[in-house]
Simulated scan of single mutants.
Amino acid sequence: MKIAFFSFSSLPSQRANSVFVMKMCQGFSKLGHETVLFVPRSNNAVPHDKIFDFYDVEHRFKIIQVPKPKFFGSGITYGLLCALKAKKMSVDLAYSRHLLSGFFSVKLGIPTILESHAPFKQNGYIYDMLFGYLLKAKELKGVAVITESLKKHYVQQYPLLKRKIFVVPDAADVPEGKARTQSLHGENDRFCVGYAGSLFKGKGIEVIIPLARLCQWATFHIVGGTQEQIDELKRQQDAPENVYFYGFREPWSINGYLRSFDVLLLPNQEVVNAGNQIDIGKWTSPMKLFEYMAAERPIIASDLPVIKEVLQHEKNALLCGPRDIACWVETLERLRDSPALGTLLSETALEDLKRNYTWKARARKILGYYSNQVS
Rank of each mutant, 00 (worst) to 15 (best):
L335S: 10
Q373N: 01
V167P: 07
V174W: 11
E291L: 10
T77S: 13
V36W: 09
F290Q: 02
A179S: 12
N372A: 14
R259V: 08
Y244D: 03
Q227M: 07
F200R: 08
H185C: 07
K85Y: 13
Q14M: 12
G225D: 01
D352T: 12
V36H: 14
L160G: 04
M1A: 13
E333Q: 15
M287P: 02
C192S: 15
Y257V: 06
L37F: 00
F290C: 00
K88N: 13
E351T: 14
S285F: 05
G124A: 06
L335I: 14
Q277E: 11
A86M: 08
K70C: 03
P240K: 08
R249I: 07
T343F: 07
M287V: 15
C192E: 08
F166H: 04
K282T: 03
S338Y: 05
F8V: 10
A218H: 04
V193Q: 06
L150P: 04
K30N: 15
I64W: 13
Q312V: 13
F61A: 05
P305C: 01
V310C: 09
V46G: 02
L211F: 12
H153P: 03
G79T: 01
S18E: 09
R41H: 13
G73Y: 14
H117P: 02
G177A: 02
T343Y: 06
Y292P: 06
Q26F: 08
R163I: 01
F191R: 02
E34R: 12
E139W: 02
Q65Y: 15
L199M: 02
T35P: 08
E139S: 09
L31D: 09
G247H: 04
L11C: 09
K308R: 15
S90G: 03
T77V: 15
Y246N: 06
S90Y: 05
P40W: 09
